[in-house]
């Protein structure tokens, strides 16, 4: 049995998540990744914004910071730059990270600041009652898209890669074992890492869209996910409406904190001459 207890704030349970919610699966994957990384609890800052996923920090025994909607990465930027030895992890949702927080997300990726961002993508605003988000697929319903969503959806991982993230991977709550493997790789990566975790929201996404219960959603993830190695070989038509999973991007780029330290050392040396 994995020692989850070691990381949990037991007196904060029961959690607020609905029955069948994927947030708990992502949380457990995150804890397994942290345990494997051997990073001490004191050296981890877990930062979130607002939403279902952003309630994660309250349940775990780290330095935890629950911020304002969309701003988690901006708060995390200050934490990391002011205390570079902290391992900064951001947990956020599709609305938090790519709608209200979209600007912070792309600019942190561009800077390649060393942090790990886990995005719980459930295609919907769960906390506020099922409104359409930037990742709600076209045609699907939300409480603010009662006739079906007419907006195209963001591909969160593609956005992260385009903006400059060093490491980008995607998995689903059905593929939980891969999820903690990717989060672990993200924790070890020097630079901006993004792990997109596809999570079921049976309450606010499955119900209005008649997608069945959480077991049906898990089956859907199983049947409709294709490993990135295969996705690269098949036609666009064959992977339409499928979820590509795996390590989508892993590159070496100069990391912001290191670049800043180099600059600071150079300036301080010049001044002393």
């Amino acid at each position: 049995m994995f020692p989850y207890e070691k990381y949990l704030r037991r007196n904060k349970f029961p959690h607020i998540w609905c029955t069948g919610c994927g947030c708990g699966i992502v949380l457990k994957a995150l804890l397994r990744a942290i345990e494997k990384s051997k990073i001490a609890k004191d050296d981890i800052a877990l930062v979130s914004g607002i939403g279902c996923s952003s309630r994660t920090p309250g349940y775990v025994d780290f330095n935890t910071l629950h911020t304002t909607h969309g701003r988690a990465i901006a708060f995390a930027t200050g934490l990391k730059l002011a205390k570079k030895e902290l391992n900064v992890i951001v947990v956020t949702g599709d609305g938090d990270a790519t709608a209200i927080g979209g600007n912070h997300f792309i600019h942190a990726a561009r800077r390649n600041l060393d942090m790990t961002v886990v995005i719980y993508n459930n295609y919907i605003y769960g906390m506020t009652g099922g409104q359409a988000s930037p990742t709600t697929p076209a045609g699907k319903k939300g409480s603010t898209a009662p006739y079906g969503n007419i907006e195209p959806a963001f591909d969160v991982s593609a956005l992260a890669i385009a903006a400059g993230a060093s490491f980008v991977a995607r998995s689903t709550c059905y593929h939980a074992v891969q999820l903690d493997k990717y989060i672990h790789k993200g924790l070890l990566k020097k630079g901006f890492s993004v792990i997109e975790a596809m999570t079921p929201c049976p309450t606010y996404y499955a119900r209005p869209n008649r997608l069945g219960n959480v077991v049906d959603m898990m089956h859907w993830y199983k049947e409709n996910s294709i490993p990135v190695e295969i996705a690269r070989k098949v036609s666009e038509q064959e992977k339409k409406e499928k979820i590509t999973i795996g390590i989508l991007h892993d590159a070496e780029r100069p990391e912001y904190c290191e670049e800043y330290q180099k600059l600071s050392a150079r300036i301080m040396k010049t001044d002393n001459k």
Binding site: V47, L65, T67, T68, G70, R71, A74, F75, A76, T77, G78, L79, K80, L81, A82, K83, L86, N103, H104, H107
Partner: peptide, 13 residues
């Protein structure tokens, strides 16, 4: 928005 968030993050350390 980010500037204000970042100084709060830094001050917490």
């Amino acid at each position: 928005l980010a500037s204000m968030a970042a100084i709060i993050g830094a001050s917490l350390t």
